[in-house]
Amino acid sequence: MLSKALTAAALRPIMLSILDRGEAYGYAIIRRIEELSDGRIQWTAGTLYPLLHRLETESLVASYWQPSESGPRRKYYRLTPKGAKALEAEKRQWLDVHALLLKLWGPEPAFG
């Protein structure tokens, strides 16, 4: 399980990345994350929806209601162009951290 701090930090990039792959409704997003992380990363509804709200107020995400055959209608979310840009920025930052960590965890470099 991820630490609380890391979960919080990873919320935005994960959400933006998932929606970058296509529109989805809240429950589907949680399932997806669970699947992709082999159950190691689990979000609750209380985390997910407020996050979506926030992204929406920042206009990174847009939402709309869609009827469903299996029951009541569902609210779908999709990335806006502004959201796509924000994802690029997030991605760069994560890759920077990732690159740094890889270097630090790799074979000891020679000083001199």
């Binding site: 409704y25 429950y27 929806y49 709200h53 029951g71 009541p72 209608r73 569902r74």
Partner: peptide
């Protein structure tokens, strides 16, 4: 609106 979304979420998970 939010409650409706949450309810749908609940139903999905139960299913």
């Amino acid at each position: 609106d939010d409650l409706e979304e949450l309810e749908r979420h609940l139903r999905d998970h139960v299913a």
